Computed example of a mutant assay.
Amino acid sequence: MTNVDALAQRIQLAWGADSQPASLLQAADQAFAELVGHTLFTVTRVLPGRREIERLYSTCQSVYPVGGRKPMEHNAYADSVHAEKRPFLARTPTEFRHLFPDHETMTSLGIGSVINLPVVYDGAVLGTVNLHHLEWVYEDKDLEPAMMLARQITPAMLDTSRPSMTAL
Rank of each mutant, 00 (worst) to 15 (best):
M1T: 11
V4F: 06
A6P: 00
L7D: 02
A8H: 03
I11L: 04
Q12V: 14
A14R: 03
A14W: 00
A17N: 11
D18N: 13
D18F: 05
D18W: 04
Q20N: 03
P21A: 10
S23P: 03
Q26K: 11
A27E: 04
D29L: 05
Q30T: 11
Q30I: 06
F32V: 06
A33E: 07
E34L: 14
L40N: 10
F41P: 06
T42V: 15
V46R: 14
V46D: 01
L47V: 02
G49T: 07
R50D: 07
E52M: 14
I53K: 13
Y57E: 05
Y57R: 09
C60N: 12
C60K: 11
C60A: 12
Q61G: 08
Q61I: 04
Q61M: 11
Q61L: 10
V63R: 15
Y64D: 02
P65S: 12
V66D: 04
G67M: 09
G67T: 09
P71R: 13
P71G: 12
H74C: 09
H74T: 14
A76H: 02
Y77R: 13
Y77E: 08
Y77H: 12
A78L: 06
D79C: 06
S80N: 06
H82A: 08
A83W: 04
K85E: 07
P87F: 10
L89W: 01
L89E: 04
L89M: 03
P93M: 04
T94K: 13
E95S: 10
F96W: 09
F96L: 13
F96C: 07
R97Q: 12
L99I: 09
L99V: 01
F100T: 04
H103A: 15
H103C: 14
E104V: 13
T105Y: 00
M106C: 12
M106R: 06
T107A: 01
T107Y: 01
S108I: 02
S108A: 15
S108L: 07
S108N: 12
L109F: 05
G110F: 08
G112V: 09
S113N: 09
S113G: 09
V114F: 02
I115G: 05
I115S: 07
V129E: 05
V129K: 04
N130A: 12
N130F: 09
N130H: 09
H132E: 13
H133D: 10
H133Q: 14
H133F: 07
L134F: 05
E135C: 12
E135T: 10
V137I: 03
Y138L: 07
Y138W: 09
D140W: 03
K141A: 15
D142V: 06
L143K: 06
L143G: 08
A146P: 03
M148L: 12
A150Q: 00
R151G: 14
P155Q: 06
M157E: 04
M157H: 05
M157V: 09
L158F: 03
T160P: 00
R162M: 11
P163A: 05
P163C: 11
T166N: 07
A167Y: 10
